[in-house]
Amino acid sequence: MNKPFDMELFLAGVMTGSPTTQQRHLRQARIIQAEIARRWERATPWTWQRKHLAWFLYQYLAPHSEATRWYYVLTARLLTRRLQKPWIFHS
């Protein structure tokens, strides 16, 4: 039996800021995870490559506003920090 991936536990060590900001990052990280799992069949961030996050930020979010994309870039940077990867994303 597989347990669902706990994004809150995954990001707990790198999240800072107000509770509202932390909730936004958590909500966005879950959305990123769900879309990457749907598109690439990669269920957890440990299996992601840079191209998966880049696809989400630059292709999936293309129709969204610049402000929305910026907030998702901030969340992607948190995910990258937690994964200890040197990936850099720009808005």
Rank of each mutant, 00 (worst) to 15 (best):
L79F: 04
R27P: 02
D6S: 10
A12C: 06
Q49Y: 09
R38T: 11
H52K: 05
P45S: 00
S91E: 12
Q59W: 14
M7G: 00
T20D: 15
L26R: 09
E41W: 12
R42M: 11
A67T: 11
T44Y: 06
A43W: 09
T75K: 04
R27F: 14
R42E: 12
I32E: 03
Q33N: 03
Q84Y: 03
T21R: 02
L53G: 09
A12Y: 04
I31K: 11
Q49M: 13
Y72N: 08
L11T: 04
M1F: 12
A76L: 07
Q33G: 02
H52T: 01
K3R: 15
L26D: 09
P4W: 05
P63E: 08
W40K: 10
T16A: 10
E66H: 11
Q33R: 12
P4L: 12
P19S: 09
K3N: 12
F10A: 05
F10W: 07
A54M: 05
A62S: 12
T20A: 15
V14D: 04
K51V: 08
A34S: 13
R69T: 11
T47V: 10
Q59R: 14
P4H: 07
A54D: 10
L61P: 06
E66Y: 12
E41V: 13
R69Q: 14
W87G: 03
D6P: 05
R81A: 11
T47I: 07
Q33S: 04
R69M: 08
W46R: 14
H52M: 07
A54R: 08
I31P: 01
Q28Y: 13
E66S: 14
W48M: 03
L11N: 00
W48G: 00
L83G: 01
R38Y: 09
L53D: 08
Y60Q: 07
S18N: 05
H52W: 04
Y72R: 06
F89W: 06
T44D: 07
L78W: 10
I31E: 14
I88V: 15
M7F: 04
T21Y: 10
W55F: 07
L11V: 01
M15I: 10
E35A: 03
F56D: 05
